[in-house]
């Protein structure tokens, strides 16, 4: 299990009007094996933070470590599982082919953590191995994307609002599956969302970011047992997070 350390990170972009500062001296420690959810106002830099941790964006200043490795080294070691807002499936590959793709790149083939068949079974797509993405619903496509994320056995899951575009019922089913899979794989999860209910439902830790330049406005541990089905209790946490988002620093 890997710890994620973000130290003194600055991130700014040059725009015609000057400098667009996203982070200034951002510091975070994500405990190993934890499910950490990041919430914050739109445009505060949640996705940018995920990209920095994934090594897809080099910060203007500061350091990020995944265990003892830099993000680039972690990427090369295939420790990082990335899932964005859309499924990003290749339409010319079958379900099986899309999942296998995660093992075919990075210059050397990987031995999967589980067989492709087991992964397909885990995400509830048995029988659809040879189906093409356009034949699947949005929810099923996201299941394929989830199986593909898990295929190389990543030690860190970086999830950028992966189910934001899905209907409430499908999202609910997928959240249950993610929770189940996370408990099985013991990965460190960094999950970005706008959905406070999702945050209260999934998180060990909730990190509330402020508006730009973003800093940590509040941080909560949610010690409630899993799976969390007590809607009243989840509602209380939602309220707490909402207050942190709306109010001052904590």
């Amino acid at each position: 299990m890997l710890e994620i350390r973000i130290r003194h990170v600055d991130q700014a972009f040059s725009i015609p009007q000057g400098r667009w500062v996203v982070f200034e001296d951002l510091n975070l420690e994500i405990p190993p094996g934890s499910f950490t959810v990041i919430v914050g106002p739109s445009g505060c830099g949640k996705s940018t933070l995920l990209r920095i941790v994934a090594g897809l964006l080099r910060p203007t200043a500061g350091e990020v470590y995944l265990g003892s490795l830099s993000p680039e080294e972690a990427r090369a070691a295939r420790w990082i599982g990335w899932m964005g807002q859309g499924p990003a499936l290749l339409p010319w590959r079958t379900v099986e082919g899309n999942i296998r793709l995660a093992l075919e790149v990075n210059r050397r083939p990987l031995q999967p953590a589980l067989s492709i068949g087991e992964l397909i079974e885990l995400v509830g797509l048995r029988g659809f191995e040879r189906a093409y993405p356009r034949m699947l619903s949005g929810g099923m496509q996201q299941r394929v994307a989830l199986a593909r994320t898990l295929a190389p056995g990543p030690r860190v899951w970086l999830m950028d609002e992966p189910f934001a575009a899905l209907d409430a019922l499908t999202r609910e089913q997928l959240l249950e599956e993610v929770e189940r899979l996370w408990q099985r794989f013991h990965a460190t999860v960094l999950w970005v969302t706008h959905d406070l209910h999702e945050a209260a439902r999934l998180a060990d830790e909730v990190i509330v970011l402020s508006g730009r330049p973003a800093h940590v406005r509040a941080r909560f541990s949610i010690p409630d047992p899993r799976p969390r089905r007590d809607e009243r209790r989840i509602g209380e946490w939602v309220q707490t997070i909402r207050q942190a988002l709306a109010g001052g620093d904590r």
Binding site: R75, I80, W82, L89, V105, N106
Partner: peptide, 13 residues
Amino acid sequence: PAALELMRAWNAS
């Protein structure tokens, strides 16, 4: 672009 980002996250050459 999402597929490209994914490939880069996999450290694809």
